[in-house]
């Protein structure tokens, strides 16, 4: 799989004339992580929304986002190939665990057996063997977080956006899950942006840390 860097060029975000982010430039190499920290309301979630193409039109944004030489500006979110992990796992309640993963798996993987095989392999690797038929509601918080990660990765993203995905897990689980996420990001060479207000997250990410001032 071709890997490329995620670059932000002169990104600025403002709401109602108030500047949250000014002239932000960053180049995130494959497998590297940029951590964005700051108090609530400083614009760190707006930055992720801007990168993923879901920023509310109430915000005024400028600047450019590119994956390698592919400029993403103006592309709808579904064409950007950016995997996102949210604070909540957002597993779809009407589909089984396997159904959630099949929804993410590209249609290029054809045939029921081939698709099943890919999903079972992914579950096995994450220590969730045999969970395909389960209802997501019957899983523990840590298991749900892992399924959400698998779902994001199976869609074959070109970069990873992490919107405080560790904040709702309790301490012991948090560390394991953090390790798992960053290990996957590194082995797949995914440039990653992590938004958090937990210093331990920043240390585990190990890359550049960008601190935003309170808006």
């Amino acid at each position: 799989m071709a890997v490329s860097a995620l670059s932000l060029r002169s990104v600025g975000i403002a709401i109602g004339g108030r500047h949250l982010i000014r002239d932000l430039c960053a180049e995130i190499a494959p497998g590297e992580c940029l951590t964005v920290m700051g108090p609530s309301g400083c614009g760190k979630s707006s930055l992720l929304a801007f990168v993923s193409g879901t920023l509310d039109p109430a915000f005024a944004a400028q600047g450019s986002v590119a994956l390698g030489d592919r400029v993403l500006d103006g592309a709808p979110p579904e064409h950007r190939r950016l995997g996102i992990l949210f604070q909540d796992d957002l597993l779809f309640p009407h589909l089984s665990v396997g159904g959630n993963l099949a929804f993410a798996l590209p249609a290029a993987v054809r045939g029921r057996d081939a698709r099943r095989g890919r999903i079972d392999a992914a579950l096995r690797e994450a220590g969730l063997e045999g969970y395909a038929a389960r209802d997501p509601a019957t899983l523990s918080g840590g298991q749900r977080a892992r399924v959400a990660l698998l779902r994001t990765l199976l869609a074959e993203p070109r970069a990873l956006l992490l919107d405080e995905p560790f904040s709702k897990l309790d301490t012991a689980l948090r560390e394991d899950f953090r390790r798992l996420v960053f290990a996957h990001a590194r082995t797949r060479g995914l440039p990653t942006i992590l938004v958090t207000h937990d210093e331990a997250d920043a240390r585990a990410a190990g890359g550049t840390v960008l601190r935003l001032a309170p808006g």
Partner: peptide, 29 residues
């Protein structure tokens, strides 16, 4: 009754257009 907006964001990040995301994720609920 459902966190539709967040689920739709997740479905679109997985590569689905807004209409298909609504039909596949929200409509069944």
């Amino acid at each position: 009754q459902i966190p539709a907006a967040a689920q739709l964001r997740a479905a679109r990040a997985l590569g689905y257009g807004p209409a298909q995301a609504w039909l596949a994720v929200v409509l069944p609920q």
